[in-house]
Amino acid sequence: MIESIRGRSLLSLHGVSREALVEVLDTAESFVEVHQRTVKKVPALKGRVVASLFFEESTRTRLSFETAAKRLSADVLSLAVASSSVKKGESLRDTIATIDALGLDAVVLRHRSSGAAEQVSRFVPHVRVINAGDGLHQHPTQGLLDAFTIRQVLAERRGVSAVETGAALFDGLRVLIVGDIVHSRVARSDVDAYVTLGAHVRVAAPGTLLPIDIDTWPVEVVGDFDEALEWADVIGLLRLQNERGTGSFVPSLSEYTTTFGLTVARARRLRPETLLMHPGPINRGVELDSAVADLPAAIIERQVSNGVPIRMAVLYLTVAGTIREVA
């Protein structure tokens, strides 16, 4: 069990304790306030160097990390490498060594290969590595920001301070995750975060999109989306990753929408307080109907804007390694 992410790399949420998760959420709360200032900057990582290495395309995660690093006053080196390291003719090890020579404190890494972040952490053990999504494996900051967003909204509804609730609002919270679980690094990180925080998680997906070992996950599998609609306090939809060939795992996109899409008809059956989430980018009309995405219950934009304070918290805790001096 990882009892705190302070001073260490963040590669996965697997094995990260409840206390460690709450520490990140609480730290992020303190950074939300920075966002509301005229001068949106704190000196916490002044003089520190953060490299942002995206070997796979991404808009929101990358902008969110870089914004977070800049708000902490870190110097940001940004390298986008759209093609794979092999095609480029340079190994991941060489790329990292080159950048490390510039004097790094942290690397934010997105890569199409599972395990790339862990490998990089072996290549440069003195640098904090933050996994910004590796293959089908993990996307820990997405799991954190999803948990953060849920806690924030529920705390607002109850008129209480999110920080004071700790993990209490997750106790018995019913979360339904729907869609392409097997190919989703977000699903793995979300399940790790929600279950550790105390939520009750169900998953719904076509048989071909469930992991082979789903019976060993701390979740319940529901065969039918409709069965669990009214049960859920939170519904997390996953992107059907057609660009990864996921389309061939279901007979057609329209059949997928009919069986596992959050259509207008299904949305009508939801309890009014049920929250709708999606890690983006949305395939509108496939996993989520356009009209539903724009309902007040959908907190998708909140997820995006919470990316910055969560990533500030992660950078701050992993790099500075102490919670005392938050400005």
Binding site: S114, G135, L136, H137, Q138, V182, R188, P211, I212, D213
Partner: peptide
Amino acid sequence: NEGSLSSRLGLIG
């Protein structure tokens, strides 16, 4: 090898 470990590691089995 395909199994629980490959699934946890996000590696296709």
